[in-house]
Design a protein around this nucleic acid. Structure first.
Lengths: 203, 203
DNA sequence: AAAACATAGTTGACAGTGTAAACATATGGC
DNA sequence: GCCATATGTTTACACTGTCAACTATGTTTT
């Protein structure tokens, strides 16, 4: 009688790993930080609380995977943002900066997680950093071509990249933490800050 | 017999609150993040596991207090760093920047905690932000006097402050997370990045 | 000084967590 | 068809934050 109403889920979920990741991403969006529990994820996936351990050795492994996904998304966002301006490194730089900050503001927990080697994420930090570094690649390209075209000062691009990255990283985090208040820092602080940096880069 | 060897600690610890804070600061130094447990703190203080609750309503309250202490220390460091250069805003700015980054590198977990509104710290966020903001005051003073003396461009100081803060905040965190690698970003990336920003500020 | 109260400790309990081990079921290659 | 393997489940453990009930000490009031 009753078993007619019940949808008989098969013993095997079929795509648990993806489901776990998507659920985790969802929970990252829902609340601040990454205090979500593996057991809650399992509950939402309607699976026993230990099932996730067949796909991730421990919670920090899942967090690391989420971080990697974040870096991939961020790089994609950056590349999309610069595509419309193939001939203007300056426009590319400011467009990418805006896209970067927006990514952080749209996915605050995720962004913070990406840079949290502590708070639970320790494994394959090297690998993770490599992927993070590839984000830097987008920036380096812009600066290199900017120097060739004569838009930027001819100084070591790596140093310029560090300056740019630090600037957007800092702005993003300050914004996420609600520290760029109008009263304290003026209207549109991020834009103004980026302009200031740009003036230091341009020749 | 045996009680002769035992030092009879009084029932009341006498200074538990301070001890808790100091132990927590110690544990913040010892390991990454703030996953230390209240119970471990109680153990080290040789006190029962619930005793800390007589001084802090919950763990996040303790974390908030630690964050406040961090901001006080940071501001003190900054003020000390600029004292030797009363007549050179430019020297002040670069000295303060160095001091700021050094604070973060010396106390990585503590620094990250200060900016972690998530991860457990939610209460009196307003109050916390106010204290954070007062750090910004040091920066604003430097920039204001720099403009008067003619060292910096005459633009809204708030925007300049945002640029500077974002820059050092970003550099500090990138450095803490080990992302300012020589191979990727050149020798002494932080110094170079600061110079770049300074060139955008100077007239 | 005695009594009453407030403060700062202790003990014991609870629900919830991450994680491990032992067991169960489905699936794909022989 | 059969078995190894991958993927689930159950059970169990040590530990956590937090609460409630209790107790010792210090302080204030009478």
């Amino acid at each position: 009688m009753s078993e007619m109403n019940e949808i008989k889920r098969p013993y095997h979920h079929g795509d648990l790993k993806r489901t776990i990741i998507e659920t985790a991403l969802q929970m990252l969006r829902e609340s601040e930080g990454w205090q979500f529990t593996l057991r809650e994820i399992a509950r939402r996936a309607e699976v026993s609380h230990a099932a996730p351990y067949k796909h991730f050795p421990d919670k920090s492994a899942l967090l690391a995977e989420l971080a990697l996904i974040g870096f991939d998304q961020l790089r994609a966002d950056l590349e999309n943002s610069i595509a419309p301006f193939p001939d203007s490194p300056i426009k590319q730089l400011s467009s990418a900066s805006r896209a970067y900050i927006q990514f952080g503001e749209t996915n605050p927990s995720h962004y913070k997680l990406m840079f949290s080697s502590d708070a639970g994420v320790k494994p394959n930090q090297v690998h993770l950093n490599e992927r993070a570094m590839s984000t830097l690649g987008v920036l380096l390209d812009i600066l290199r071509r900017g120097q060739i075209v004569g838009a930027f000062k001819k100084k070591p691009v790596e140093a310029q990249a560090a300056a740019c990255w630090a600037q957007v990283h800092g702005l993003t985090l300050l914004s996420i933490d609600g520290l760029l208040l109008k009263e304290k820092v003026g209207e549109n602080a991020a834009e103004a800050a980026l302009r200031t940096l740009l003036e230091g880069l341009q020749q």
